[in-house]
Design a binder for these strands. Structure first.
Length: 467
RNA sequence: GCGAUCGUAGCUCAGUUGGUUAGAGCACCUGGUUGUGGUCCAGGGGGUCGGGGGUUCGAGUCCCCUCGAUCGCCCCA
């Protein structure tokens, strides 16, 4: 911009951390979205969607500082008061959504009285976070969310984990590639209280544990001192309970009954319930306990989990948020859910050669043309291409044509093969007698078909019926 | 927001100690090899070397700034 007239226009680049989806990229995105949608529906979830921006206050307290620092802010610019507010406070009235759970909780709270229990919803929203892009992290991304609302039982926790596992299975991933790491905030909180932390400092302590690996040892020690936490004792207790729980998990995976657990507490009861429910879902082999996971978002309660793949960031993360809906003005409503981003998932699929391409991808997405019409004859054949394509489309077929000027059949067929068409319709000398050549590009056979029977012939043959 | 590396056609890259009109392969378009699907051959379109400034007789090649990308930090999907 700012160039003199006559100079070439300035080129624009897409904003930092965003992606352009050309056709080859879009089909890969659709492949993932289709798997998300198919598996969600298979597990009995119903699709919802909300606004891409919300009142900034929606995120203010519930999400925690971590997300607040990454908010993309938005305002209409229509009123002087609004502009002045942004200028004075640096805070806009709206924010592009950085996550979906607050929107979901708001939507549920609005109609809670008329919604069934449990309500099972999924969404495939686009999200925005103003962080520095890097491997597996962009500023604009898709995130699949699946939530069970109104069911406090561990069966609900297991059900959302099961739909995530179902997705991995659908895409060809297994427990060799993927691990579901389970934890429980109530259990960790109990142990914090038993190891020196006062009632009012539990939240702070959880945040501290969440960052433990990322801070200097002496800094961690000092922070522990401030809240009275005996970190060594806590680590020892958590570690021994963790290995006990993992042994129980392994035993159950071998078909044995759940072993007795030494400790008795509300947190342990939740974990035992979860273990039984995961067993009922048949997905124990994907899971393990990892009590170092507490998660950064402030609204989590009880069960929390992260799903990881070797060498990558977390593919998905989630947990219980039993008080969030109430805090948005709804009735007290337990809920559990997770989010899975498209960026890391794509990397994992690529890494294992599980992202299909070419014909297989076109087949999965239903984008293969049924007929590809080419003219290899005189002007009358050229003129017949457009009406013939239109006729096939009216018959409900996916019909395309070549736009090349050449009459070379090899090049025209190459054109047809490039889009994975099932049949090539060749207009040549026989067109003057009302017939076309149809080549089945799958098996190489060629047939002479009267024009009037072309569409039904292709439709039947596509359906696998004998002609 | 901080650090490191990088930035030449749509893609992958080559460009000699700075020196005349910036190259290749793939892709795209056209034509030929006289008519059937990732052969071969020929031709063509497309880049002011991310952008701006500076040093120099002269910079894609050196210096500064800026934008972007990649990989870490932070945080999380």
């Amino acid at each position: 911009m700012g160039e003199q007239g006559g100079k070439r226009a300035a080129k624009f680049q897409g904003p930092k951390g965003t992606r352009d989806f050309y056709p080859a990229d879009m089909v890969r995105r659709r492949y993932i979205e289709q798997a998300w949608r198919t598996v969600s529906i298979r597990h009995g979830f119903e699709e919802i969607e909300g606004p891409t921006f919300e009142a900034a206050d929606l995120y203010a307290v519930k999400s925690g500082e971590a997300i607040l620092g990454e908010l993309f802010q938005a305002f209409s610019g229509k009123s002087p008061e609004e502009v002045e507010q942004v200028r004075a406070t640096g805070r806009a009235p709206y924010a592009l959504r950085p996550e979906f759970t607050p929107t979901l909780a708001r939507m549920y709270a609005d109609r809670a009285a008329s919604l069934p229990r449990p309500t099972k919803w999924f969404a495939i929203p686009i999200h925005y976070r103003a962080e520095r892009p890097q491997r597996g992290r962009l500023r604009e991304f898709l995130q699949w969310n699946a939530d069970v609302i109104g069911d406090e039982s561990p069966q609900a926790d297991a059900e959302v984990i099961a739909v995530a596992v179902g997705l991995f299975t659908e895409l060809g991933l297994s427990g060799r590639h993927i691990t579901v790491r389970l934890s429980n905030r109530d259990l960790v909180s109990e142990l914090l209280l038993e190891n020196g932390v006062g009632e009012g400092n539990v939240g702070r302590a959880l945040t501290l544990l969440d960052r433990r690996d990322r801070m200097a040892a002496e800094e961690f020690t000092r922070a522990c001192g401030e809240i009275g936490l005996n970190a060594a004792a806590l680590a020892e207790r958590l570690g021994s309970i963790q290995s006990e729980m993992n042994s129980a998990l392994a035993a159950m995976e071998n078909g044995e009954a759940m072993p007795a657990i030494a400790r008795r507490s509300p947190g342990i009861e939740q974990l035992k319930g979860l273990l039984a429910a995961l067993d009922a879902q048949g997905i124990l082999k994907w899971c393990e306990f990892d009590f170092s996971i507490v998660r950064g978002l402030a609204y989590y309660t009880g069960t929390v989990f992260e799903i990881t793949a070797a060498g990558e960031r977390a593919v998905a993360g989630g947990g219980r948020y039993d008080r969030l809906i109430e805090s948005f003005g709804g009735p007290p409503t337990p809920a559990v859910g997770f989010g899975m981003g498209d960026v890391v998932l794509s990397l994992v699929l690529e890494e294992h050669g599980l992202m299909p391409e070419g014909e297989r991808l076109a087949e999965c997405l239903g984008t293969r043309p049924d007929a590809f019409v080419v003219s290899a004859g005189d002007e009358s054949c050229d003129a017949a291409v457009a009406p013939l394509v239109a006729e096939l489309r009216r018959a409900g077929l996916h019909a395309r044509r070549s736009y090349k000027a050449t009459k070379k059949i090899d090049k025209l067929l190459k054109d047809a093969a490039a889009c994975w068409a099932r049949f090539a319709v060749i207009l040549d000398e026989s067109w003057s007698a009302g017939r076309v050549q149809v080549k089945d590009l799958t098996d190489g056979t060629q047939h002479t078909i009267p024009r009037a029977q072309l569409a039904p012939w292709i439709a039947q043959r596509r359906a696998g019926l004998a002609v």
